[in-house]
Design a protein around this nucleic acid. Structure first.
Lengths: 146, 146
DNA sequence: TGCCACTCAATAGCGTGCTATGCAAGTCAC
DNA sequence: GTGACTTGCATAGCACGCTATTGAGTGGCA
């Protein structure tokens, strides 16, 4: 059994990830969003005023990555960062009006991308696909920490 | 049906891609390789002396990405680039001895990552997973060009 | 022959991820 | 209360992907 890219799960998942990201990028760019900020926005739309640490824990990104992304988001007027009155180390991120207003169109865009990408699969296959990914992610995160 | 990250194929595939990449990175770093060069090395191990254009076509990356990656590979002594004697525009990439020697351990590392990642799935599930990814990739590439 | 269009590759500039490091603020031991 | 540890965030520097632009070489055609 020789190793080939086209049958390597690692390669396939990365390649597919790029395709998804490019498609989403194209659809949310007109809104002034980009793929990197999207997961952060999802969290903040859910609940405002999170700390950087909380975002790191929820998203599985590194602290430095979140710090950089928040900086861009602040620069682009999606959020404002304000210190916590009780703990001087903490900076909480709050959506601006503009950031808040993007929720519906952005989520719609993401749903469109998902639907288009999986349009060649049956309902059953789609569910299986999602479950296989969740299971594999759990496998990774079950090992070394999370 | 509300939108959630944990059930969004796009988010899952990207998250899983990062996990795979991190795991592979950790295993091939001791060899002096990184995840970005890996697909290019696979092509060159298969056949030496490819042009940048040929690599772009085989890998579905942008020309600029391949150019940058080849530069790093040359800097790190994995390849040498030599012009084509018949066409002055073309630069072909040739593996160095060192680059050539890394094939076996690098492929072994990738196979280990795949095996570890999918160790929680049955044989049947693994096959289904790979097929679902191939099918979804084909769906994407079937649309706008390839 | 001389020009134009095309192709190939390099480069600039940026987003998004990482590791490593530093600093300021809080906390705990004593 | 002081010193040491911990926690939260920022920054530097790099890999790796992208778009856009540039420049050099080829080839066709008037």
């Amino acid at each position: 059994m020789t190793f080939t890219m086209r049958s390597s799960p690692g390669y396939l998942v990365n390649h597919l990830g790029r395709l998804f990201a490019a498609e989403l990028q194209a659809r949310i760019r007109p809104l002034g969003l980009s793929v990197g900020v999207f997961p952060l926005m999802l969290q903040l739309w859910e609940r405002d005023g999170l700390t950087q640490r909380e975002l790191v824990d929820r998203l599985g990104l590194e602290q430095a990555t979140v710090a950089n992304t928040l900086s861009r988001m602040a620069r682009d007027g999606l959020i404002v960062r304000r210190g916590d009155p009780h703990d001087g180390r903490i900076a909480r991120s709050w959506l601006t009006e503009r950031g808040r207003a993007l929720r519906a169109p952005a989520v719609a865009a993401a749903e469109e991308v998902n639907a288009a990408a999986l349009s060649g699969l049956s309902e059953r296959e789609r569910d299986a696909f999602v479950q296989l990914m969740q299971k594999t992610i759990a496998q990774f995160e079950g090992n070394a920490a999370g």
